[in-house]
Design a protein around this nucleic acid. Sequence first.
DNA 1: TTCCAGAGTATTGTATACAATTAAATTGCC
DNA 2: GGCAATTTAATTGTATACAATACTCTGGAA
Lengths: 159, 159
Amino acid sequence: MPKVSPVLLDEQLCFSIYSASKKFNHFYQSALAPFGLTYPQYIAMLVLWEDAPLTVHQLGDRLELDSGTLTPLLKRLEKQGWVTRVRSRTDERQVLIHLTEMATAKRDEVYQRIGQCQTLLGMTNKEIDSMMTELVTVKEQLDHVSDNRLITKKVDDFD
Amino acid sequence: MPKVSPVLLDEQLCFSIYSASKKFNHFYQSALAPFGLTYPQYIAMLVLWEDAPLTVHQLGDRLELDSGTLTPLLKRLEKQGWVTRVRSRTDERQVLIHLTEMATAKRDEVYQRIGQCQTLLGMTNKEIDSMMTELVTVKEQLDHVSDNRLITKKVDDFD
DNA sequence: TTCCAGAGTATTGTATACAATTAAATTGCC
DNA sequence: GGCAATTTAATTGTATACAATACTCTGGAA
């Protein structure tokens, strides 16, 4: 039996990122409380403010989320008056997500609020860019590794 | 009305981290498929392998999770034979989480599998340390900001 | 034209997260 | 010793995530 080194939680990059992600989630939840948006709802709105209308599929591509997550999320956004969900007339399979007038009207207010709260973080653009660049590398590695045989082996292969 | 800059999803550090966190989750889910552990279950086991037995509260401190998340997670780990949940006799409020013999026996196998899969990521210790250091800074900022008045204002204050 | 493979969305089932509440046990304080 | 405040888990309710499945629609091939 080869010697195996212990895996310590506090040394794991995955946990640092997992923990940071949860803190960001909480941060935006608080920052957006005046608008009643959760973090995932907020990033969906960001994409729509850039590009609406979009199909569920297009939105999912940008957010890296599938219809299993988006359908209920979008129904909640619709109920709260941010978007409308309309079957495309040219292709009945698609559902187009449109912004409501309220969403368009509140866009700059949200942008401004986010800007204010982000200022509190006190990070320079340089620091942010540097982190994002490193994260891109990590994410690319994770995507590549997902195709590796060691990882894609089925459970049964191990028994 | 002051001019407001648009908030673009692809420029948001939060989304980079959110996305990376999901990819890590998927990576570990695959890597740990032979053991049937999810990522949150895995990090719970990591802490227990370091320090078992622990109370739910102590485990929650390490993982930054509360009993609302941990109670069902630990029940699933118990059903799958990794841990036992035992009321403390000295303080009946507490539930002690012990490792089973299976968990102790499989520890090195899991460590080894994780080691193999992490090698595929091809990151040097230096790169990992550097990222983790930056993440600590971000997380500290997020913690501080959470105490700020701008953030802690109640929804009603805005209406 | 009919049939069917594939695309797009919704649904189901399982597992997190977390705020808020509940319930039980313990501690402090008189 | 008695009781309010606190501590600890569990529970409840809401919102993600995502794999797997179901369902509908579309476009193309026979």
